[in-house]
Amino acid sequence: MKETTYIKRPNRTLFIYALIYLAFLYIPVLFLPLFSFNDSIYIAFPFVGFTTKWYSQMYHNEPMFAALLNSIRVGGATSVIATLLGVFGAKAVTRYRMPGKPVAMFIIMLPLVIPGIIMGVALLIVVSRSGIPLSLYTVTLGHILVCVPFAMATLIPRFEGFDRSMEEAAADLGENAWWTFWRVTFPIVFPGILASLLLCFTISFDEFIMAFFLAGTDPTLPIYIFSQLRFPAKLPGVLAMGALILVVSFFVVVFSQWLRLRNSNDITSSGI
């Protein structure tokens, strides 16, 4: 496939630039797994020796596993609730003509343009003023707020992408709104729902700025990591875990992209 038209001819300078850019993106990140195998608590060149002891030590690190579990819980709850709210919202804004829709969209999308620290302290103030103890629930509330715009942004194209007459056909054939959703809408937007779940989970799992204000005595994983960064002796263990998270998120992202692409192919080939 030789498509070297006048406009599209290859550009070596840009290609080299792209490689340097990728190096800038990846090299810092790759330092984490690299030093996680270094047999020294000091994170500096030259290497002292190869070891896997940081990984085996990590296995017995109870507080870290507790924090990991907390993060998974918060991320799970956040992704499910935010996606559910996203499905309602995306269906409403794509399927109905409503006066004042731009205002409603503005309110829902607002968290995207407010610095996290401001939302964090605002929630902290209202939560503590109303006497609610800080806990993983308050963290989840904050994360839902951040994730709903992302869920909407993921789901709206999916709803827009399929012919609205599909739903009308189901209603026309005798199904009420509930069954129309389950028999037609849900199966068709399912890849979008899955993508939204993954995205929201990832955002929540990684979120530190708001969680820092809203967490009580139970830390999420980023809060735990942050607390460990101050102690040099704990650093290699954190690096080991960071490396593991890196590998896992690599697979999750590749899987979700593959999923997204596979299904968008489906859609084009069936001519929707």
């Binding site: 990684d206 990591i225 998270i245 690599f250």
Partner: peptide, 8 residues
């Protein structure tokens, strides 16, 4: 890289 921990 964006999907890996911000803190890390």
């Amino acid at each position: 890289p964006f999907w890996t921990s911000y803190l890390l």
